[in-house]
C-alpha cells in the first residue's frame, strides 16, 4: 500500500534533510526544499465583490490587486500572478481551496488544486540575490524587489515564481516539480563560489 509515508517530495531523492544536519555555518547562503505545500490557482474577476470577499473570508488575506505582490496572513499567502490569476499557498492539510471553491460556486471563478505541481526551494542569506542574478534577468536589488513582492520569470531557463519572504533576504522559489532536480543542480553549481548550506525550511 502506498501509505502517506511513501509520499515523495519533488527533491526527495536528493536526501536534503540528511544533508541539512551537516550544515556549514559560514555559508554565503542556505538552500532547502519546502515541500508538500497546499497550492491552488484561483481565477476570477478582481472587480467582483463576491469573489474578493470570498478570498478574504477563506484565506484571511485581501486579494492582492497590485501586480506582483503578495498578501499574507501568516498562515496563508496569496500571490498575484496575473490580472485574473492568483496562487493561494497554505501549509499541508489546509482545506482553503475546497472552501473557496464552494464559496465561489455561484460566480464565474475557478479554483484548481496545483499543490503537487510545484515545489518550493528556499534561498536565504547574503548571497541569495547573487545566485538568482546568475540565472534570472529580473532586478532583485533591495531597491526594486522588496518583501512580499513576487514575480514570474525563468531561472536558468526554468519557469519560476519568486516570492521574497524577508529582508534576510529569503526567497521562496516555486519551480515545477519535473524541473526541480535540474534547478537544484543548477543552484548548487551557482552557489558553490559563495559556499552554501542545505537548510530544512518549515
Amino acid at each position: 500500500m502506498a501509505d502517506s509515508y511513501l509520499r515523495q517530495s519533488a527533491l526527495a531523492s536528493l536526501h536534503l534533510i540528511a544533508r541539512a544536519n551537516q550544515a556549514d555555518s559560514n555559508a554565503g547562503l542556505s538552500m532547502g526544499e519546502r515541500g508538500f505545500l497546499c497550492q491552488w490557482v484561483v481565477r476570477g474577476d478582481a472587480g467582483n465583490a463576491v469573489f474578493a470577499s470570498a478570498v478574504k473570508d477563506v484565506t484571511g488575506c485581501d486579494l492582492p490587486i497590485e501586480p506582483n505582490t503578495v498578501q499574507g496572513s501568516g498562515y496563508i499567502n496569496v500571490l498575484w500572478l496575473g490580472p485574473d490569476e492568483w496562487l493561494i499557498v497554505a501549509p499541508d492539510g489546509s482545506d482553503a481551496g475546497p472552501r473557496l471553491d464552494e464559496a465561489c460556486k455561484d460566480i464565474h471563478a475557478a479554483v484548481t488544486d496545483v499543490s503537487e505541481s510545484r515545489t518550493v526551494i528556499v534561498l536565504a542569506g547574503e548571497h541569495a540575490r547573487d545566485v538568482l542574478a546568475k540565472g534570472c534577468a529580473l532586478d532583485f536589488h533591495a531597491r526594486s524587489f522588496v518583501v512580499d513582492q513576487c514575480a514570474q520569470s525563468t531561472l536558468a531557463h526554468m519557469h519560476v515564481i519568486v516570492h521574497q519572504r524577508s529582508d534576510a533576504p529569503e526567497f521562496d522559489v516555486y519551480v515545477h516539480r519535473s524541473f526541480a532536480e535540474s534547478l537544484w543542480q543548477w543552484l548548487e553549481d551557482a552557489a558553490a563560489e559563495y559556499g552554501f548550506a542545505v537548510s530544512n525550511p518549515v
Partner: peptide, 15 residues
C-alpha cells in the same frame, strides 16, 4: 556560460 554539458538544457523528470 554554465549551459553546457549536463546543464546544457534543463531536464524534466517524472516522479
Amino acid at each position: 556560460g554554465r549551459y553546457t554539458g549536463q546543464m546544457l538544457e534543463p531536464v524534466r523528470r517524472s516522479p
